[in-house]
Design a protein around this nucleic acid. Sequence first.
DNA 1: CTGAAAGCGCTTACAG
DNA 2: CTGAAAGCGCTTACAG
Lengths: 358, 358
Amino acid sequence: MSNPRPRPSAARARAAAPPASGRGGRVTMSDVAALARVDKAVVSRVVNDDKVLSIRPETRERVHAAIRQLGYRRNMAARSLRTARTGTLGLFIPDFANPVYAEIITGAEAEALARGCVLMVGTSTAGGRAAKDYLEVLGEGRVDGLLLAGGPITWAEQETLSSLGIPWLLVNRRGRTTARHVILDDTRAALIAVEHLLELGHERIAHVGGPAGADTARRRRAGYRKALRQHELIPDPDLDVVADYTPDGGARATTELLAGGARPTAIFVANVASAIGVLTALRTAGLSVPEDVSVIAVHDLPLADHLVPALTTVRMPLRRLGARAAELLLTTQPGDLISEVVREPIELIVRQSTGPPS
Amino acid sequence: MSNPRPRPSAARARAAAPPASGRGGRVTMSDVAALARVDKAVVSRVVNDDKVLSIRPETRERVHAAIRQLGYRRNMAARSLRTARTGTLGLFIPDFANPVYAEIITGAEAEALARGCVLMVGTSTAGGRAAKDYLEVLGEGRVDGLLLAGGPITWAEQETLSSLGIPWLLVNRRGRTTARHVILDDTRAALIAVEHLLELGHERIAHVGGPAGADTARRRRAGYRKALRQHELIPDPDLDVVADYTPDGGARATTELLAGGARPTAIFVANVASAIGVLTALRTAGLSVPEDVSVIAVHDLPLADHLVPALTTVRMPLRRLGARAAELLLTTQPGDLISEVVREPIELIVRQSTGPPS
DNA sequence: CTGAAAGCGCTTACAG
DNA sequence: CTGAAAGCGCTTACAG
């Protein structure tokens, strides 16, 4: 641990010194006040743009000049201690490598910044330690609120979370107990995808779904079934398999699907990352896409254009989801029930991986 | 702005109250001290595991019991104000969507956490605002130090950065002026890649390099040239093109390369994201990989296995780079000159995209 | 309209 | 070996 600066009380002396060039002596409001010949309360009001403050333009300018001259920057720790707000939002994700979360982060970060906050992103499994411990660290007054995107939440984490006494919000998943979440219309995304296949004339449509516990997986499966039923088709359990949201998972599930003997003419994949593996597995099995099997997936990525064949996808407003999550966290009361679906347009992006059955 | 809690001085009253269940009355050290019948200084020493403190085990247990009973959590703002340390590290990256940074973040986060700090990751272009403004926000005493990974840094940012008076370190790039950086051995990675092609018998080896300003691009190009020269081959400027580190950039550069009429038998791509586009462009041009053209790229990703054909790559210790960066920032003095190359093994991962020239 | 004062919750030299 | 006190840098009701 580094010692706190010694500095007995040389504030006055430093006031006239040249701008604090990085090193050493921290410049405080008192220094600015002394140089501008006003009280530090006035400096505070000027810095925070207090509407109530009436001050001669000339005095205000003197304060600004002093701030510039000394290179003053306000101290967040002192501010936080006084106001009991940190201006920081936390966001928990399962994994930085998942491009879906990259979109959510980007949206949340932009919104937070626009509202004068910064965003602190952490992974639940960081450094092999339990998410619970990470939550404890954030809970020491480091954040004003917590966004929890995707991934499962254990009971211990849930417990810790509520003991923190800060507002939180689930993103892209619903909770078991309290209603505090923002999600997308995953059911509709699945509907759009499967409708596209149905319109092309497919009837034997398989589903490579998400992991058992995932709330998004549940809703996408519901959409898949609903679309089939609307066309008087009965969902065939042999055509419905489970994969985690990774390329390898998608490949394994597809191999399993084909081994079952059931030959679909089209596959609806619940997640674009899995779909990458689905394409690999189909190729390995000697099947052509889309001639033998059509493939469509939820979530669009720049990468989709470069897959072989280029992947048809359903684009979801992930960035908007992140932004809205940050907004809700910042504008609602901790006790409020929040159960919102972001209704931004969901788009079908037709590329090369879907076509009529042969 | 929310008002600070009113709370005249009911500390004593709350001390005996049930655990602060989230809402309202914040529990402080004084509360714990009162309940445990010791001075709050003692609580502080117990909480911080002060080695110098000698205390009866019984008393220590009383303090711990009080902490548990009240659900006490120390307040970071007060701590920071007192100690002039935040326990937070900042990391600036150009873009969350780039999987290369995901690896760096993961390494840095784990290391920071292991050292009792949290990591705050931000993007330079967040919400369309200049990196400079973001730096200003972080500069208000929010972080103890700043890691700057990749991406260009403007003069204004450089200026702001040094005016902040906090230690910083460039990651995966060198600076123009002061030596404060950790990098990988990019020259050697390029050497390994090109050597692989040379060993297969290739002589007309093209280079799809990184963007003009990028320091990694410079060093990978140097490695490419060095490998050729070591085999008495003269680098051909017509075989050396520039792309940004994206699939689309790689595709454009390859199209340009082929349009020039020069037909390489192999391509060394400076970055795996570009390589995705290189494969697409070759396919579009009707060329087979590796029969007509071999392709190898720097950086390995899970995705490489699923490209068509599976991409041969050179794996770099990106996670270690992130971890080492965090470690250096936390263990060196702000004035120290740091110019380190992380020497973890660089591995050649041979897949399907390279073979002998036909 | 401006200034003086209190106090946010902690840590740590210092005195007893 | 433990406790009382000072003070980190701010903000904001309140008094003048």
